[in-house]
């Protein structure tokens, strides 16, 4: 078990190395020039060149990347071009907010998605099933900002139940978490529904009925634990999709997380921050997958981690 986790962590380091390289290449070939952003429109060519030299951006790609990697290995993510603060400090200040939002959103989407999926499966082919599947289709395809603005308009502006944006209390958390949760839930509802339909046809469900168990017991005790297995593997993959949603939702709700940080950094071509946020997100995805893989054998005894 410990050997398995260690091995996975070694692999994670390799993955992060790959992510850092690809991101660095993409930012290098980007037509936007970070130095222009720093120097401003009115700067003379001499100033621009001196800033470029200062930041080491005049060096060839391989030197720049090598230097970044060397610093990274020492735990140094570099400094923001514009804010002059260390990227590590910026990120660690904002990471708790993002993690909180992510956790709340995952709980939301699982609770909503799995429940609706189970209900749809039990009412298969009837009106309720059709309505649920249609609405799941809508949530899967709706853009994040539309849902975010809709929720804001109804629950914050019209009803005034929740604050319009910001951070600090539980009430601030509800709408952003719900936005991400609703968006993700359709996906899970569909997977859970088809997984449940497979399981409900299984022989062991008939065995459970032959034992004389009640309907609730059969569904919650036998069908759901089996149906949830493919969903767990999905959660790990889903974290990646989640990160992209968080950038948008944090911006709409003014949630001070790393998504917002990334959004601002992208607009200003603040390369160290973009790199830092990308690496932290990649790390979160890798760890999320590891956790999902560690949970699986707890539910399914057939899975052995090696």
């Amino acid at each position: 078990m410990l050997a398995y986790i260690l091995r996975r962590l070694v692999m994670s380091a390799l993955i992060l190395l790959g992510v850092s390289f690809i991101t660095f290449v993409l930012l290098y070939v980007l037509p936007a020039d970070p130095v222009r952003q720093i120097a401003g429109r009115s700067a003379t060519p001499e100033t621009v060149e001196s800033i470029r030299r200062q930041l080491g951006l005049d060096q060839p790609f391989i030197v720049q990347y090598g230097r970044y990697l060397w610093n990274l290995l020492q735990g140094d993510l570099g400094r923001s071009y514009l804010q002059k603060t260390e990227v590590a400090v910026l990120i660690s200040a904002r990471l708790p907010a993002t993690l909180l939002l992510m956790l709340a959103a995952i709980v939301c989407e699982l609770v909503i998605g799995l429940t609706l999926g189970v209900i749809a499966a039990l009412y298969r082919g009837r009106a309720l099933d059709n309505v649920l599947m249609l609405s799941s289709f809508v949530t899967v395809s709706a853009p994040q900002f539309v849902v975010a603005l809709l929720l804001l308009y109804v629950f914050a502006v019209q009803l005034g139940w929740f604050p319009i944006g910001g951070y600090g209390t539980f009430a601030h958390l509800v709408l952003p978490a719900l936005t991400l949760g609703i968006l993700g839930s359709g996906w899970y509802a569909r997977i859970m529904r088809s997984s449940m339909l497979d399981v409900l046809r299984a022989d062991f469900i008939r065995t459970a009925r032959a034992k004389g168990l009640g309907r609730g017991r059969i569904i919650l005790g036998h069908a759901v634990p089996n149906a949830i297995l493919p969903v767990i593997a999905m959660i790990g993959i889903d974290i990646g999709i989640f990160m992209s949603g968080i950038v948008v939702v944090e911006s709409v709700f003014g949630w001070p997380g790393i998504g917002q940080l990334a959004w601002q950094a992208i607009q200003r071509v603040d390369i160290p921050i973009i790199m830092g946020v990308t690496l932290v997100s990649a790390f979160a995805i890798v760890i999320g997958n590891l956790i999902a893989d560690l949970i699986s054998p707890l539910i399914d005894p057939r899975i052995k981690l090696r």
Partner: peptide, 30 residues
Amino acid sequence: LRGARIAMIFQEPMTALNPVMSIGRQLTEA
């Protein structure tokens, strides 16, 4: 009555038991 006064065994032993529940629990549950 099911399982108590009339019980049944099925053809496919490989799939007739719940794969994620221990034998003991499946028996005590019945």
